[in-house]
Amino acid sequence: MSRAALLVLADGRFPAGGHAHSGGAEAAVKAGRISGAASLEEFCRGRLHTAGLTAAGLSAAAALGIDPVALDRAADARTPSPALRVAARKLGRQLLRAARATWPSAELDALGREFPKGAHQPVVLGLAARAAGLGPVDAAYCVAYESVSGPASATVRLLSLDPFDATRALARLAPELDRVADRAVEAARQVVDEGVDALPAGSAPLLEIGAEAHAGWPVRLFAS
């Protein structure tokens, strides 16, 4: 395996549709809950330890070779907001396209046949990591980082925030990213013996409520 494949997969320019999603930041900005660099950092911190941890666990488990159908159901149960389930499947489908083009693999083709309308994005990412020769730790890091980098770059556009401030906020979260990735991988390894109930199920009420509010707006910049 080449560790450098992780850089390709985690690159914000990897063409898998992430740029059109704000990870809940657009709703939080409109509600006044994100108004600058400090509140962006707290938003990202909260998202990382809830939705980010949950997604990282799913992804690490997929990278370990756990049945993606069981993981996709576990993702549904951990995603009560239908707007977020739709977004996760849309992003999963887009990621699958990019991953199949980048790292052709029979597993990815099979996933596409199983989920023609898309599987949850973290599950796809775990399998993409496998196809790229990466492991569960890589997948967990990639997903945990995406859970904060998406809202950060969206907020730069939404608030014309100084991009250096946003990037500094991400850098300050690095030690917590390490912990989240560790927890996610540890839980994913438990799935082998205990089933998908062992996966983290962290939730964030305001992300759930905000996603449904956002889905109802007639005019918005981001898809979620």
Partner: peptide, 16 residues
């Protein structure tokens, strides 16, 4: 939906 960047959606990341 383009996340405020139509040029990204038509050129750099065309997946959507």
């Amino acid at each position: 939906e383009t996340g405020a960047c139509p040029h990204t959606a038509i050129r750099d990341d065309i997946s959507a």
